[in-house]
């Protein structure tokens, strides 16, 4: 059993807590939060040891692994403390506000031989995994364009909010939503390295952007668009889609289905000319516990399995998350240049 603790009992922390609480290989022993109300609830109704000081929790609980789901500005300090105490870390996204700090933490995790993962759950959605597989087999031929999009209804009117709506805290549409889209582009295509024509738009929020539009260039030279908006109530919840165009066809994929258009048959993959639709139901494995979608369970399974087997190569490592952090910084710089 992996002795595990959680810091931060907000939306993601509580969700991770429930999934790990039901995980057969995990002994979730403790939780930590700064809200006395939330802690009171956990003290009264859960079996977990409760802390309001994360250093004390790490010192007292002899943890193998730790989930960090606090506001982004606290990540670096907490991750560093955990790694220095020889604890494997799953950290929520985005990884770090400061890329230099992120690089140091990545090196520290490697040096201490500790499992390190960031909560980019799209990497565990079967449709996106299938897109990656198809692209690696060069089914679309030479690629010439991509579009990465995420839309959802978070900020729909002008009013005060939480840390997510304060400048410099790691909130805003860029950190909260666009980080997922950028990471997905990195996952299925290649590392994005350059940005241009960035527009960070304030729609309803006063201090943070509600939409992010930009042009990205990948390390392969492929260019495409990033289009993200968290003030879009035509979607019921966050919807992420990636479109890839190549000389032999096109792929459009979201979390529920994957549509491939091919100009000619692809015999190796058994795909025929024209449209083929693959659904998540056919592609996905069955989770052992399901809270809000299989991917949230699968990403934690991946982490726990890595801890069990002491395998520090990870599908969503600090190193890969750092690419997103660096790109976010470029987007901010590019926007202020405009």
């Amino acid at each position: 059993m992996i002795r595990t603790g959680i810091i931060g009992l907000g939306k993601m922390g509580i969700s991770h807590c429930a999934i790990l609480g039901a995980h057969p290989d995990v002994d979730l022993v403790s939780v930590c939060d700064s809200s006395s109300l939330v802690l009171e609830g956990f003290k009264k109704y859960s079996r977990f040891e409760c802390f309001n000081d994360y250093k004390k929790m790490i010192a007292d609980m002899n943890l193998d692994a730790l989930v960090i789901a606090t506001p982004t500005k606290f990540h670096a300090e907490m991750v560093s403390h955990a790694l220095n105490n020889n604890v494997h870390v799953f950290c929520e996204k985005p990884f770090s506000l400061n890329a230099e700090e992120g690089r140091q933490l990545t090196a520290l995790a490697k040096r201490n031989n500790l499992v390190n993962q960031v909560g980019y759950h799209n990497r565990f959605i079967a449709t996106f995994m299938e897109v990656k597989r198809i692209l690696e087999l060069n089914v679309l031929g030479d690629l010439y364009h991509f579009v990465g999009e995420s839309y959802g209804p978070v900020v729909l009117k002008e009013k005060a909010g939480t840390w997510r709506s304060e400048k410099g805290q790691g909130g805003g549409c860029l950190y909260d939503y666009a980080s997922h889209t950028i990471d997905l582009i990195h996952f299925v295509l290649a590392r994005p390295v350059k940005v241009s024509g960035t527009q960070l738009k304030f729609i309803f929020s006063k201090d943070v952007e509600d939409a992010v539009y930009s042009n990205l260039t990948l390390e392969t030279g492929l260019g495409g668009h990033l289009s993200v908006n968290w003030s879009d109530d035509t979607h019921r919840k966050m919807a992420t889609q990636i479109t890839v165009l190549g000389k032999k066809g096109k792929i459009i994929a979201d979390a529920t289905e994957l549509k491939i258009y091919l100009k000619e048959d692809n015999k190796a993959l058994g795909l025929t000319r024209g449209w083929t639709v693959k659904n998540i139901v056919d592609l996905s494995d069955i989770a052992n516990f399901n809270l809000r979608g299989e991917e949230y369970s699968f990403q934690l399974d991946h982490f726990i399995h890595a801890v069990k087997t002491k395998n520090i190569t990870n599908r969503s490592s600090f190193e890969s998350a750092l690419v997103t952090d660096e790109l976010i910084n470029q987007l901010i710089g590019d926007n202020s240049n405009n």
Binding site: G10, T162, R164, K237
Partner: peptide, 15 residues
């Protein structure tokens, strides 16, 4: 649920 879930992202649990 989405009414509350989106509210938590925007307003926090207390909000």
């Amino acid at each position: 649920a989405h009414k509350y879930s989106n509210a938590v992202t925007e307003l926090g649990i207390m909000g």
